[in-house]
Each structure stands twice: as C-alpha cells, then as structure tokens.
Amino acid sequence: MSSKQTRPDCSRVESFLDNCWADGPHSSIAGNHDPLLNAPGLPPGIGEHLSSCPRCRGIAEEIGRVDVSLQNSFETLGGFMGPPCMGSIEATIVRLREAGPDVTLIRKVRRPLRMLLWGSFYAFSLIACCALAITAYKAFVAAR
C-alpha cells in the first residue's frame, strides 16, 4: 500500500475509532479490534484497513486498553465512594426543611409584620395619650 493511499484511510479509521469511543457503549472497542471487524453496520473498508494496517490496529488496541482501564478506575472510584449514605441524605433533608418555603416565607414576613404591629401599638398609645390629655385638660378647664 502506498503512503498516498494509506494516509486518508488511516485518518478516517482514526476518527472512526475516536467516534466509536465517544459514542458507543464503552466496551464496543474494548480489548481488541475483533469486535469491530465483525460489527454490523461497520463502514466499508474500515475492517479491511484495520486488519492490514498495524498502526491503526495498534491505535484500536490502545483505545481499547484505555477504555477498559477507565472502566476499572471508575468502578474502583464508585466503590470507594460507596452507596449514598442515608444519614447524610436525611441530614440534608432536615436542613432543607428548616430552609423550606414556608419557613422562608415566615422569615420574610416576620420583620414587616413585627414593624406593623409595633407601629400600630405606638400609634394607638399616642392616640390614647392624646385623648387622655385632652380629657384631663377639659376636666381641668371645667373645674376652674
């Protein structure tokens, strides 16, 4: 095979392998290139190229190895983290309950409500004081 013929083929196969890795379930190219050669719907020429080009076969095998290692690594990491801790989940829910919409609403309205109540109290007190003062003044004037 001349280099003029192989180059475009190699780049096409490389991009096919990359796409395979990005799109496929992650065992589609794992291990070796044989599943690729027998895969249904394989673009024409890819299988032949893989069986004849050691470079591309090497890339396929390398991607397969990386794929399997990544699977193992993530399984290890997933196992390390363990299943969700119910204690942590419940603790989060308790915190959310405390910061729930009703509690937030109460907190939001509490301050203006308090101000309104105190304002009314002061206003009524003032009115009562004024009324008392007027009554006392009138009584004082009447007594004179």
Binding site: R65, Q71, N72, E75, G78, G79
Partner: peptide, 8 residues
C-alpha cells in the same frame, strides 16, 4: 482484559 462487572 477480564470481563468487568458493572456496578451501575
């Protein structure tokens, strides 16, 4: 490559 058991 050994077959891998998937936990997910």
């Amino acid at each position: 490559h050994k077959p891998v058991i998937r936990w997910n």
